[in-house]
């Protein structure tokens, strides 16, 4: 029984998706259940959006998924005839779909939460500055969810790949570099820094939407380029028992 091999890029994409779908389902399931529970037990009145907090959790989750890409998949894929270049390309395609799915889930969550608030005549508010002004601005929510999770996914991927490629010492430097990049890019961190340093508690965001895309896009492109270089030149280490 002969079988036909599939494209290495498609194969890599499938492997990455396979190893992520369970955590993806768990993450969004748990986030949804927690939000519903908090809404159910909380007393009515003026409040911040609970779903907004998922942005923070999403950053951590996307970061962890990014970390797992290199250590969890590089060896097995190389052993199955995938080249580093093909894996790097497939990872970028996976990141696009993964982060878009995250953005869409953020948008759906805000829409559902907004419906719950509206039906109870509650007044919702956001604690952090965002690209969107209301919870029903679906495209802007998706864009923010996509870009923020892309930068943290690539951040995790970048740090893990640096550790894999160059070892612990340079790996530690990559954490510092990533924090620097993310600190200067992430609109809320940036704004929080401004607030902290100037004690100007009225300032919410110093980025326009265009600046937000430009800066984050630049950061993402920089991380993606560094990852591509490291992946394509790395040697594969044996993973022994």
């Amino acid at each position: 029984m002969m079988t036909k091999p599939i494209s290495p890029v498609v194969l890599t994409w499938q492997i990455l998706a396979r190893s992520t779908w369970l955590t993806f389902t768990l993450f969004w399931g748990v986030s949804g259940i927690l939000t519903v529970l908090l809404l159910a037990v909380d007393s009515p009145g003026i409040r911040s959006s609970y779903w907004e907090q998922v942005f923070e959790a999403l950053n951590i989750y996307a970061f962890v998924v990014g970390v797992r890409v290199t250590y969890g998949h590089l060896t097995i894929l190389m052993n199955h005839g995938v080249t580093r270049k093909q894996m790097a390309l497939a990872t970028l395609l996976f990141a696009l779909v993964f982060t878009l799915a995250n953005g869409i889930m953020m948008g759906i969550g805000f829409a559902l939460e907004h419906a719950a608030y509206s039906s109870n005549a509650w007044q919702e508010a956001f604690a952090q500055p965002h690209l969107f002004k209301t919870a029903v601005d679906f495209p802007a929510i998706v864009a923010e969810g996509l870009i923020l999770s892309a930068s943290t996914f690539l951040g995790g991927h970048f740090i893990a790949t640096t550790f894999y490629r160059f070892g612990k010492i340079i790996g530690m430097f990559s954490i510092g570099l990533y924090l620097l990049i993310s600190f200067s890019l992430e609109v809320r961190s940036y704004s929080n820094a401004i607030v902290t340093f100037t004690s100007d508690l009225t300032r919410k965001s110093d980025f326009t939407a265009a600046e937000f895309f430009l800066w984050n896009g630049g950061g993402i492109a920089l991380l993606a380029l560094l990852i591509q270089y490291m992946l394509q030149t790395t040697e594969i280490k044996a993973k022994t028992r």
Binding site: M2, T3, P5, I6, P8, L11, I15, S19, Y71, G72, H73, T75, I76, N79, H80, G81, V82, A238, K239, T240, R241
Partner: peptide, 24 residues
């Protein structure tokens, strides 16, 4: 050495191999 199969079952590992090797 242990290849990082993650949560793969044996059947899935063979399926991965079948998708990888032209003469499988």
């Amino acid at each position: 050495s242990r290849m990082t199969y993650g949560s793969f079952k044996v059947r899935e590992a063979l399926k991965l191999a079948s998708a990888s090797w032209p003469n499988w």
